[in-house]
Amino acid sequence: MTQNIYSRIHLAYSLVDSSQVSTFLISILLIVYGSFRSLNMDFENQDKEKDNNSSSGSFNGNSTNNSIQTIDSTQALFLPIGASVSLLVMFFFFDSVQVVFTICTAVLATIAFAFLLLPMCQYLTRPCSPQNKISFGCCGRFTAAELLSFSLSVMLVLIWVLTGHWLLMDALAMGLCVAMIAFVRLPSLKVSCLLLSGLLIYDVFWVFFSAYIFNSNVMVKVATQPADNPLDVLSRKLHLGPNVGRDVPRLSLPGKLVFPSSTGSHFSMLGIGDIVMPGLLLCFVLRYDNYKKQASGDSCGASGPANISGRMQKVSYFHCTLIGYFVGLLTATVASRIHRAAQPALLYLVPFTLLPLLTMAYLKGDLRRMWSEPFHSKSSSSRFLEV
């Protein structure tokens, strides 16, 4: 009896450990921030389209921002397969491709972190610098804020390569999370269910069953395996001597968020896929909430089905799904503490986000529209959504 009470107290204490609290807060903040960055990008693109249409006097049907990638049903079905192939390549040939993979990851992290810093740099440069773009020849034209954010990002990546500090790795992983949530779109609830269901099976298989086939937990090994520092590899290739570039640490790649506990005895880890994939769903429902708010404004406050209470009508899909994400993350944490082993977080995150969303959409009468073609093609005039 005493042992059971002690184990429960220990479990409760581990859940409020600083590493777990940091993981919860940061992952939720990244999803919320990335979703609103995505919504603001839509507003900016709509304004640019209106300006272009008014200046040209005609409508350009191909006005979608080329930097935004929309996932269709075929891509949603094959993405888990592609992820599995990439995972196997990293598992079997990590030693051969680790330097190339590290460099590519560093380049992507530099661009993503510059995107994360851009609003802050725009705020800092607005009083002292006009928003005119500076030409760099074939490289393109950039504002002072874009140049500042890119310079700071390059500096951070260089310090990370030299030190390998976990905090800098987390910063780069945060940039990757926000950029992927902001630039990737789920067009409908059907595509969302296909993608998240496939990734749930992918996550469960590679965490629970890969050890029976490959005699090792493929997911955990790839996620935790450090890579050789490119500076060290370059020093050895060029024979620069034993004291040049040899004291740099191996790098843990920014494919995850890690936070140390208050005692420093362990790290809490969460893969960026466990943030980005539910984050894409949150981004989708935020866009739908905004669309529905515009539509209800255009129809002078038309209400939903008569059997739905006014209080439920006021609950947004974004709030419902975000609460589900929190509960799913909490459940995954409890499961990992009970079983004392790595858990596929999507096994808990996908049901706790999709099922409440599907239930609420059915009760509100929006399920059919959200399932296939949730958005009209017309541009909206609303600029902000209260959350």
Results as ranks from 00 to 15, higher is better:
Ser67Met: 07
Gly245Met: 04
Leu234Ile: 11
Ala76Lys: 02
Leu30Pro: 03
Pro130Leu: 04
Lys314Glu: 13
Ile275Phe: 01
Ser149Pro: 03
Asn290Trp: 09
Ala332Arg: 02
Phe136Tyr: 14
Ser27Ile: 00
Val276Trp: 02
Ala295Phe: 06
Ser67Ile: 07
Leu108Asp: 04
Val327Trp: 05
Ala12Tyr: 13
Leu162Ala: 07
Thr321His: 01
Ala112His: 02
Leu358Val: 15
Ser197Ala: 15
Ser56Asn: 13
Val157Asp: 02
Ser296Phe: 05
Asp47Lys: 14
Ser299Ala: 13
Val107Ser: 08
Leu234Pro: 02
Ile338Pro: 03
Val315Cys: 10
Gln98Trp: 08
His266Ile: 09
Arg287Ser: 11
Val97Gly: 00
Val21Ser: 01
Gln343Trp: 02
Ile5Leu: 14
Gln225Arg: 15
Ile9Glu: 13
Ser252Phe: 08
Ser129Tyr: 11
Gln343Lys: 08
Ser22Leu: 09
Phe205Tyr: 14
Leu172Glu: 04
Val350Leu: 01
Ile28Ala: 12
Ile26Trp: 03
Asn229Met: 08
Tyr291Glu: 15
Val32Thr: 12
Met174Thr: 05
Gln343Glu: 09
Val285Gly: 00
Leu189Lys: 06
Gly271Ile: 08
Gly310Trp: 02
Ala295Glu: 15
Pro374Gly: 06
Thr125Leu: 11
Asn290Arg: 09
Pro80Phe: 10
Lys221Trp: 06
Gly264Leu: 07
Glu44Met: 14
Val233Asp: 04
Phe208Lys: 04
Tyr325Phe: 13
Gly271Asn: 12
Tyr212Met: 08
Cys177Met: 11
Pro80Met: 03
Ala182Asn: 07
Pro242Trp: 08
Leu147Trp: 00
Tyr33Asn: 07
Met90Gln: 11
Val107Leu: 15
Leu349Met: 00
Ser67Val: 09
Met1Gln: 12
Met360Asp: 06
Pro230His: 07
Ser336Ala: 14
Phe94Leu: 13
Leu79Asp: 12
Ser151Leu: 11
Ser63Lys: 08
Arg250Ser: 09
Leu148Lys: 04
Ser54His: 10
Met41Gly: 14
Leu167Glu: 09
Trp160Ile: 00
